[in-house]
Design a protein around this nucleic acid. Structure first.
Length: 350
RNA sequence: GUCCAGAGAUGCAGUAUG
């Protein structure tokens, strides 16, 4: 049962939920009793696909057939609810869980706190934060990281700093996640030198920056149109032994596109394939926007074709970019054609 | 015996509105 549950978990993470359920079928056929962990794993698989309603149904079936969920089962669904933006329902489920005699733990609380922070209702998150502490549940790195991120996104730097100090005082050492949140927040706010300070601080504290740290920093420079600085970070990453990924390329490509330096962006795009990275729909959408911005309508049309030829499906953002590009360049008829084509492909304009 | 099957935090793209 342990082995097969592990297998189910693997399938879930590979987005092969059907296979996961087949394994459950096999288990039953072999006369093996699935247990709470097996069901929780499948429930998580459903949540990963955003199928939270079926996940809840599975929980109900589980209870009806006599299998006992536990706190992890509940928190799995709580997480699913939060990820699809139903934080309020998640809170209700937390209460229900407690009514049924399960004790909340730091994971459920942190999950909800994170959801509230992402919804930008940090005051509510802080209320839950006090609530958990009053129940004697100690916050951990996850809890503090979510709160720090929420506060930063609202520009409440003082409060964010206070949180950081509080966590250190509580002997919960910030890790690479925590620092990366700060680097990203400062970068997005245009305070790249502050972001640099955080990188220095983390190195001093013995926490090694990773590819996300440097990518965030790069993005900060790009947003300030400081492409030389961004390029320096890009090169520094290689020197430090990091292999660039699609994200780091996309960030640089976006930087060049926004500065109307489309040729340099295209060069990076070519480099990507050279080193075996597969450009994704974000890469293409970024470049399409860049091409239209400098009036290269024909090149954009060709790239749009190429993207589909390489199996990258245009999404809503890609179409918006195309439509906007056509309109701004006086190709209204092509915009209308594309709008039609998009609907024919089953994508409803938003 | 908080290692030994399951839950939580970090980086990239568009339009309109503001």
């Amino acid at each position: 049962v342990y082995t097969l549950t592990t297998l189910i978990n693997c399938f879930c993470r590979l987005h092969k939920l059907d296979f996961g359920f087949s394994v459950l079928g096999k288990m039953l056929k072999l006369g093996l009793e699935p247990n709470t962990v097996t069901f929780t794993t499948l429930i998580n698989g459903l949540c990963i696909e955003g199928k939270v309603a079926p996940a809840v149904r599975l929980l109900d079936e589980m209870v009806e057939t006599g299998y006992k969920p536990d706190v992890i089962t509940y928190s799995t669904i709580v997480n699913g609810l939060c990820k699809i933006g139903n934080t309020n329902v998640a809170i209700k489920l937390l209460k229900k869980m407690e009514e049924r005699g399960f004790e909340a733990n730091v994971v459920v609380y942190s999950t909800i706190i994170d959801g509230l922070c992402k919804d930008k209702v940090v005051t509510h998150a802080l209320e839950l934060f006090s609530e958990m502490k009053s129940k004697g549940i100690l916050p951990d790195r996850f809890t503090y990281s979510s709160l720090i991120q929420g506060l930063c996104n609202l520009g409440q730097w003082k409060e964010a700093t206070r949180m950081l100090n509080e966590m250190i005082a509580m002997n919960i050492t910030p890790n690479v996640f925590t620092f990366n949140i700060l680097v990203d927040a400062f970068s997005k706010e245009g305070l790249v030198s502050k972001a640099q300070d955080v990188v220095q601080m983390m190195i001093q504290r013995g926490e090694q920056p990773d590819i996300i740290t440097y990518s965030s920093l790069m993005d900060g420079y790009c947003l300030q149109s400081q492409m030389d600085e961004a390029k320096n970070v890009f090169n520094l990453m290689v020197l430090k032994g990091f292999a660039h990924d699609v994200f780091s390329y996309n960030i640089m490509i976006n930087g060049y596109c926004k500065c109307r330096r489309i040729d340099e962006a295209m060069r990076l795009f070519d480099d990507m394939s050279q080193i075996g990275l597969v450009p994704n729909s974000i890469t293409y959408t970024t470049l399409l926007g860049g091409l239209f911005q400098v009036g290269r309508v024909q090149a954009a049309k060709e790239l749009f074709k190429e993207m589909r030829a390489f199996g990258q499906l245009p999404n809503m953002m890609t179409y918006s970019t195309m439509l906007d590009g056509f309109c701004n360049n006086g190709h209204l008829n092509e915009a209308l054609e594309l709008l039609q084509a998009m609907q024919d492909n089953g994508l409803d304009p938003d």
